[in-house]
Simulated scan of single mutants.
Amino acid sequence: MIYETEMKHLARCVELASMAVDSGNPPFGSVLVDETGAVRYEGHNETAGGDETRHPEFEIARWAAANMTPDERAASTVYTSGEHCPMCAAAHGWVGLGRIVYASSSEQLSAWLDELHVAPPPVATLPINQVVPGVPTEGPFPTLADALRELHERYALADRNKT
Rank of each mutant, 00 (worst) to 15 (best):
Y155D: 03
R12A: 11
R73A: 01
H44T: 01
A65E: 15
A75D: 15
G82D: 03
E52Y: 05
E153Y: 03
L148R: 14
R62Y: 03
H84N: 13
R160W: 06
G134Y: 08
E83L: 06
G98R: 15
F141D: 10
Y102C: 05
L126V: 05
A48L: 03
A147P: 10
L97N: 07
V21M: 07
C13Q: 04
N25E: 08
E153A: 14
A119S: 14
A38L: 15
H117P: 00
V78H: 00
R62F: 00
A156N: 06
E35G: 15
W112I: 04
L126F: 02
L144V: 08
W63I: 04
T163I: 00
V131F: 03
E15I: 09
R154P: 04
V131D: 06
Q108H: 11
C13W: 04
D22M: 10
Q108D: 15
Q130M: 14
V101I: 15
G49I: 08
P27N: 10
A119Q: 14
G93F: 09
Y79A: 06
R54G: 03
M87Q: 06
V21R: 03
P27W: 03
A111R: 13
I100E: 12
A11G: 10
Y3D: 07
G96I: 07
L116S: 04
A74Q: 07
S30V: 12
S104W: 00
S30E: 13
V131G: 08
P86L: 09
D146W: 03
M7T: 10
T5H: 07
M68R: 09
D146Q: 13
R160M: 04
D159T: 07
Y79E: 10
P140W: 09
P133Q: 13
P122D: 05
E52L: 11
L16N: 08
V132F: 01
E52V: 12
L126I: 04
E83Y: 06
A66L: 15
I60T: 03
F58H: 03
W112N: 07
M1T: 10
T137Q: 08
P121N: 12
T143D: 13
T36K: 14
S81T: 11
Q108M: 14
S110L: 11
H84I: 01
T36I: 11
P27F: 05
M87S: 08
A147F: 01
V123G: 02
Q108S: 12
C13F: 00
E35W: 15
A64P: 10
L10R: 01
N25P: 02
I2P: 02
G29D: 04
E6Y: 11
P140F: 08
A111G: 07
V78N: 05
I100M: 15
L97W: 06
D34R: 14
L113G: 02
H117Q: 11
P140K: 09
W94S: 10
